[in-house]
């Protein structure tokens, strides 16, 4: 597979939130929500970012849209001619022209739509903001967008409360498409939905991508969803990316023990393959008080002295496959990813 042209390149991104105490708001420490994350998303590529709650995957997405100003690092957005602008360091008002290129789909279809606006206003707002069109033309464009996400244009005057969760998620998608962006950040777009509508939304996102070649950064905690939609996956654990690889490889041949554990923790949809494995003991590390060395070592069954002392670097284990482990490529993780039947 050839490398696509880069669209967004995240380099050594850090987002440390200060912990403040007392009336005077003295800083007593930092929550290292994102700690040295590097990730590239190519033109038309669908990249997954997975991890458990609190691993910092949502913080990464919110840094990209500049909900937060990153503590350190670069977020380079490339234009068609290959010139880059660093979104991490430009002042808020200068973001405006680049916001068009990066749109977001949110997890919660209820809180992400203003309940006091009609669909016409919600979906028309981005086009108003950039003075793309107005009046009848705007209305036609909203109708077109509603149709392309599978909603009926005649419902344009309705308010979000008239729609179910899945339909609201479609409204959110239509809003994200309105500016014809190059990158769409999907922040857990189906995890708040009912099982029977999840597939609709996943298929819609897949079809839109196939038709318009959008790039997606697809954030999820559910590996099977990522497997269905992404070409490449990055796995995060406590603020760091621990492994990146093509989707097919990462599930067949994980190199980081955490990825292997995550993979085997997912219950299989087959009652004859009953295992109930416990791939990981203990809890996720506290990002305000991270362990020394490798952040995963307290839960890792392969941990050695070196893991407690040295922070591992990202190492290339195969083409397009990186893992942040001292023993990447050396461990036999098959016992984790294919656990022995225990019942």
């Amino acid at each position: 597979m050839s490398e696509p042209k880069p669209l967004l390149e995240i380099k050594n991104l850090k987002m440390h939130f200060p912990i403040k105490r007392g009336i005077m708001g003295r800083t007593v420490g930092y929550v290292k929500a994102v700690d040295d994350v590097s990730l590239t998303i190519g033109e038309g590529e669908v990249v997954g970012l997975v991890g458990e709650s609190g691993c910092g995957k949502s913080t990464v997405s919110r840094c990209i849209v500049r909900a937060y100003r990153p503590t350190a690092g670069q977020i380079l957005l490339y234009d068609a001619k290959g010139r880059a602008v660093d979104l991490a360091n430009i002042p808020e008002p200068d973001m405006l022209p680049y916001r068009r290129d990066i749109q977001m789909i949110f997890q919660d279809p209820f809180s992400s739509l203003n309940p006091r606006m009609t669909l016409r206003q919600i979906i028309g707002e981005p086009m108003r903001n950039y003075q793309i069109c107005r009046g009848k033309e705007l209305e036609d464009r909203v109708a077109y967008l509603l149709e392309s996400v599978g909603l009926r244009p005649e419902h344009m005057s309705r308010y979000p409360h008239a729609f179910s969760g899945g339909q609201r998620q479609r409204i959110g998608i239509a809003r994200a498409l309105a500016l014809n962006p190059r990158l769409i950040i999907c922040d857990e777009p189906v995890s708040a939905l009912d099982v029977s509508v999840q597939a609709q939304i996943l298929n819609l996102l897949r079809d839109l991508q196939a038709e318009f070649r959008y790039s997606y950064l697809f954030i999820a905690h559910d590996l099977s969803v990522v497997d269905y939609i992404c070409e490449r996956v990055a796995v995060m654990y406590v603020g760091k990316i621990v492994e990146t690889a093509d989707t097919a490889t990462i599930f067949k041949d994980p190199q980081h023990p955490y990825t292997a554990a995550l993979r085997s923790a997912i219950p299989q949809l087959n009652p004859r393959l009953r295992q109930l494995p416990v791939p990981l003991e203990g809890d996720v590390a506290d990002p305000a008080n991270t362990p020394s060395g490798c952040v995963f070592h307290p839960r890792c069954r392969f941990a050695e002295d070196r893991c407690r002392r040295e922070t591992p670097a990202m190492t290339l284990t195969a083409p397009r496959h990186h893992a942040r482990c001292h023993f990447a490529g050396e461990l036999n993780l098959s016992g984790l990813s294919q656990p022995a039947a225990s019942t």
């Binding site: 919110r62 916001r99 068009r100 749109q103 809180s111 992400s112 707002e125 903001n129």
Partner: peptide
């Protein structure tokens, strides 16, 4: 709130 962040990502001016 998400919908306020959403408004920012679609380029809505601060006053609006």
């Amino acid at each position: 709130e998400d919908f306020i962040l959403a408004a920012r990502t679609i380029g809505t001016p601060r006053f609006r």
